[in-house]
């Protein structure tokens, strides 16, 4: 299961993710993104500290948001202090694509 909490409202959005982000749970995050995408946004941060699982599909979803919002000049970044999650972020090479806090 995935929980997405809006830890900080627009324009500086922080979304705190808890649980597991994979192909089966990605739609939960997508629903939240649909709620905020039409708002006036300055930047978006995904906090991954509460995740206990993410795979390449979940990471691909985050990179997808990064690319979509880049077209609107809205930076999207990842904030993570979770070592297990960091290992897979590094393996996939997320740092090369988007900022990791």
């Amino acid at each position: 299961m995935l929980k997405v909490k809006i830890a900080q409202n627009p324009p500086h959005v922080i979304l705190a993710l808890e649980g597991e982000l994979d192909m089966a749970t990605g739609s939960i995050l997508e629903q939240v993104m649909e709620q905020i995408e039409s708002r006036d946004l300055v930047d978006i941060t995904f906090s991954l500290d509460g995740l206990n699982f993410i795979d390449s599909t979940g990471i691909g979803q985050l990179i997808g948001y990064y690319k979509v919002f880049a077209k609107r000049d809205i930076p999207v970044s990842i904030d993570n202090n979770n070592a297990e999650i960091e290992e897979i972020l590094a393996l996939i090479g997320v740092r090369e694509i988007m900022g990791v806090g």
Binding site: D55, S56, T57, I59, G60, I63, I88, L91, I92, G93
Partner: peptide
């Protein structure tokens, strides 16, 4: 190979399995 995909995905699946 990392980044190879026949679709729009990241193409990291087999790469992760190999790790």
């Amino acid at each position: 190979r990392k980044g190879f995909s026949t679709t729009a995905s990241l193409g990291a699946g087999f790469f992760v399995m190999m790790q």
